[in-house]
Design a protein around this nucleic acid. Sequence first.
DNA 1: TAGGCCATCTGGTCCT
DNA 2: AGGACCAGATGGCCTA
Length: 246
Amino acid sequence: MPAPLETCVSDLDCASSSGSSTSDLSGFLTDGEDCARLQPPASASGPPLPARRGAPGIPVTSDTPRTQDDEQERRRRRGRARMRSEALLHSLRRSRRVKANDRERNRMHNLNAALDALRSVLPSFPDDTKLTKIETLRFAYNYIWALAETLRLADQGLTGGGARERLLPPQCAPCLPGPPSPSSDAESWGSGAAPSPCAAAASPLSDPSSPAASEDLTYGPGDPLFSFPGLPKDLLHTTPCFIHYH
DNA sequence: TAGGCCATCTGGTCCT
DNA sequence: AGGACCAGATGGCCTA
């Protein structure tokens, strides 16, 4: 784990930060105030360092003798500079990550809002029953198919007994594909038990062109598209079909 | 306690 | 370069 910025940045290079990345560090190190803030106390780093080359009064000449102390000081400077640049890089990555996290959170909130909107237009369940995300999507998928199928049959003229009755058995009309038979319990929904009259007549499963008949889709009689295991069992007896015409 | 669901973080990839 | 999107990982909460 990289050291915190303020423990890494030395007093040597505040004014020399360069490169494109520093433009993104306005919150960290851009002005003299920050540099001054980050400078350790004069007494904090032990004995005073030798005067730098180029500092006032210290002429830079090619024949300046290099002592062992000079080499050690160069190494120390390089080490500090490297730590500083790594700290800056880490801070930059961190700030970008935080922004990306914020965007991602917002994106997921928008997605959830859209899911809530979708729930709100689906046939309603009791207030304390909230469809999960996957249930919402699958239910909506089936719901749309059932409505489209109803329209299609209606467009065919509804001759000879009525397509609506063919689509929806008398014991379930007026309703669209709903949960399993009221006599079945939630467990049987998921166990591949015989579908309810509703499902038998109106479920997409009975129609090869239905979405549920597609091989691309994995849901079936035991799938949450048709079964909502979280639903209270007594609801099954009081709500024979979830989708009602008005 | 195991399993399901969810929110969040994260790094990678693609697009503008 | 930066944002959008995606999928994997992780941890919290709830329920059977």
